[in-house]
Amino acid sequence: MSSESRPTGGLLDAGLEGLSHNFLTGTLEGLVKWARSHSVMPATFGLACCAIEMMAAGGPHYDLSRYGMETFRASPRQADLMIVAGRVSQKMAPVLRQIYDQMMEPKWVISMGVCASSGGMFNNYAIVQGVDQIVPVDVYAPGCPPSPETLMHAILTLHQQIRDGELTRRPGQGAGIVIEQVGAAGPTPVVLGRS
């Protein structure tokens, strides 16, 4: 297409002919999902070891802001993603549920680490054996603690889920996606019991 035949300027300059390149068409649903998946705001819900890795993921080396995820909201009312980072004790469980209830719909939950997902190695009186007993979970990130790479994998999986999943869903139902651990191996594998 030569520059002469191509209408220049916006709709006002080119009239109706400008429509051919000034509009994108799509479904409203797709647009809403696209917007949602690109503006997820996590609530700070650091509990234990995983919280340190969650903060590290927001640090300069891993840089969560690449995905528009760096604004951790201090108030649950401004957040729509809860990253349960760490073990949930019996004393914390009501608090966690209350904070979840304070978040606005639509909201999602990432269960970060084995303690949040299943109680992990602490199978005792004090720890809730899986945060999915209290809140619905969308993505389970494995690891103890999950490396920041795994957390990012979980977040990107959630983004994908928001784009592909239902626009509306019954409250109280998580997607329950289980992901694999990534980036756990060091630069060189550590060999135990070598001698």
Binding site: N123, N124, A126, D132, V137, G174, G176
Partner: peptide, 14 residues
């Protein structure tokens, strides 16, 4: 307070 670990029949959520 140890509860047996479930290998099968995990909650419907999962």
């Amino acid at each position: 307070g140890r509860i047996p670990v479930q290998f099968k029949g995990a909650p419907a959520n999962r």
